[in-house]
Design a binder for these strands. Sequence first.
DNA 1: TATCCGTGGGC
DNA 2: TGCCCAAGGAT
Length: 367
Amino acid sequence: MENGEDASFEDVLAQALLAWYERHARTLPWRIAPKWRRAGVRPDPYRVWLSEVMLQQTTVKAVGDYFAAFTARWPDMMAFAAAPEEQVMAAWAGLGYYSRARNLVACARRVAEDYGGMMPRKADELAKLPGIGPYTSASIAAIAFDEPVPVVDGNVERVVSRLFAIDRPLPQAKSEIRETLRPLVPQDRPGEFAEAMMDLGATICSPKRPACALCPLNMMCRAHSEQREEAYPVKAPKRAKAKKFAGAFVALRDDGKILLSRRPPKGLLGGMSEVPTGPWQESPVTRMPAPPLSAPWRKITPQVSHIFTHIDLKVTIWQASLLPDTPAPEGFWWHDLENLKEAGLPTVMAKIAEAAVPGATKARAKG
DNA sequence: TATCCGTGGGC
DNA sequence: TGCCCAAGGAT
């Protein structure tokens, strides 16, 4: 541009987007505002990493309180690396995709040991760390360290597939989208460009009824010119959910405690605490499964229904009262009902406890 | 490459 | 009500 040549399509697009971003950037707790970024201020890589992992398949609104709680409790990478895994899992309870929490701990400890607590600066190095894949490695490298790499999340997939009317369905189109985006990334402001693309997708280029009239790229958008915005991105059809059934055991000791256990480290709700359950099966539960301890079990109503990403689960609940001196079987423990929130139960388990003991999962005043 | 892995909100 | 969707990663 400076030498008088016509600006390239890539430059025009990036400049239009960045100009829009300077006016319309979302204000987020882990982000540095455009005016400060341009003054050379960079976000804290620890906060960028934590936020990016929390935001995987999770809305900004859902992340809000968790990010505040995590950063208050563990203000930097070294503090987080020293946190017991169980405490992190419990603090994560309710956010979902619990392997993220386990990988977060593993990643922090790796950074502490192998990098002296300093996050590596390059995307290809970041991608070797637990819980950091193609998206997160690129986003940390671009946003925290201004490496000019294409950052492709769900927002960017939508924006790019519309801009260029990419007909190949996702997820096969991922690499095509990344390579289409690569030459658009401005070498001097890759971090803001990544944030701007995501903000555009989140606020203007929405899945339904995009606000094309407000879009800084509308004159360059092929989907818009064809009035086929909502046809993109094309997605492969998804499979039906499996139906599953399980029995659960709410053992209540007369001194106000409930019996809990811990799920296996991997798989569904891996590593999380739980209300003891029988096997998860494909046919409705007709008979009581083997209980964790001998007691006068009584089936209670109603059932609990819970929908996971790929499983539609129905839980039948048995309940029993036990004497205060009843010991917990091996691998189980008694947890104070008054402090059930601190047990870190995933949502389906909180629902089960709530069905048996209404109010149990709310913070309750003593007495 | 396809499948597994949560949750809550929008329409 | 049912389906879609949200800053994906691991295997």
